[in-house]
């Protein structure tokens, strides 16, 4: 092993550590899109905590909350409460649906699911 080898190895290690840190610190929370009756109602940044109240045409009130980089159905006056049972979502393509209110929350973000493709 000579000087050049050591230089190469150190360079690769530095680049790979820097790259790994850069990649994992960059993962920003995504955007939540809320759809009502199939049309876009609004887009919300998951990095900004907020609460959204939506009253649908048939009188169902959905109380949606964004905090800690995720979104969840805090309260809903629908009969089944399936939307509340979904819990917090934060990853791309995850969704919460409140069928009686015809309301859909979908995440679109940079943050992919853990594995989006595996080949062997």
């Amino acid at each position: 092993m000579n000087k050049r080898d050591i230089l190469l190895i150190i360079t690769v290690i530095i680049l790979s550590v820097a790259g790994t840190v850069a990649v994992y610190s960059r993962s920003s929370p995504g955007i939540a899109c809320i759809y009502i009756k199939g049309s876009l109602y609004g887009q919300y940044d998951l990095a900004v905590p907020s609460s959204i109240h939506i009253t649908s045409d048939n009188g169902i009130v959905n109380d949606i909350e964004i905090s800690e980089g995720s979104i969840y159905m805090k309260n809903a006056t629908c009969p089944g409460k399936q939307c509340m049972a979904c819990g917090r979502i934060s990853r791309s393509n995850e969704s919460i649906c409140c069928a009686p209110a015809q309301l859909l929350i979908v995440i679109s973000s940079d943050r992919e699911r853990e594995y989006d493709a595996i080949t062997q």
């Binding site: 190895i9 690769v12 290690i13 680049l15 790979s16 550590v17 820097a18 790259g19 790994t20 850069a22 990649v23 992919e112 989006d116 493709a117 080949t119």
Partner: peptide, 23 residues
């Protein structure tokens, strides 16, 4: 090749830790 086959730029996220192991 994974980028071409999978068609997602996210595979490049994988390169940095992989090169650390490669050393």
């Amino acid at each position: 090749v994974a980028f071409i086959l999978v068609g997602s730029g996210y595979v490049f996220y994988y390169l940095a830790p992989l090169c650390g192991v490669a050393v």
